[in-house]
Amino acid sequence: GSSGSSGADDFAMEMGLACVVCRQMTVASGNQLVECQECHNLYHQDCHKPQVTDKEVNDPRLVWYCARCTRQMKRMAQKNQKSGPSSG
Rank of each mutant, 00 (worst) to 15 (best):
S2T: 13
S2V: 10
S2K: 11
S2H: 15
S3Y: 11
G4E: 08
G7Q: 14
G7K: 12
F11V: 13
F11W: 10
A12E: 11
M13V: 12
E14S: 08
E14Q: 11
M15S: 12
A18E: 02
A18V: 14
V21W: 03
M25D: 06
A28W: 07
S29C: 05
N31D: 14
Q32R: 14
L33C: 02
L33A: 02
V34C: 11
E35A: 03
C36H: 09
H40Y: 07
N41K: 11
L42W: 02
Y43T: 01
Y43N: 05
Y43E: 04
H44C: 01
Q45S: 06
C47T: 09
H48S: 00
K49M: 08
P50G: 12
P50D: 10
Q51V: 11
Q51E: 13
V52E: 02
T53E: 14
D54Q: 09
D54V: 07
K55I: 07
E56D: 05
V57N: 10
D59L: 08
R61C: 08
R61I: 03
V63C: 03
V63A: 07
W64F: 13
A67Q: 10
A67P: 01
Q72A: 15
M73D: 10
K74N: 12
A77F: 13
Q78I: 03
K79R: 15
N80R: 10
N80T: 09
Q81N: 11
Q81Y: 14
K82L: 15
G84D: 08
S86R: 04
S86C: 12
G88F: 08
G88Q: 09
G88E: 10
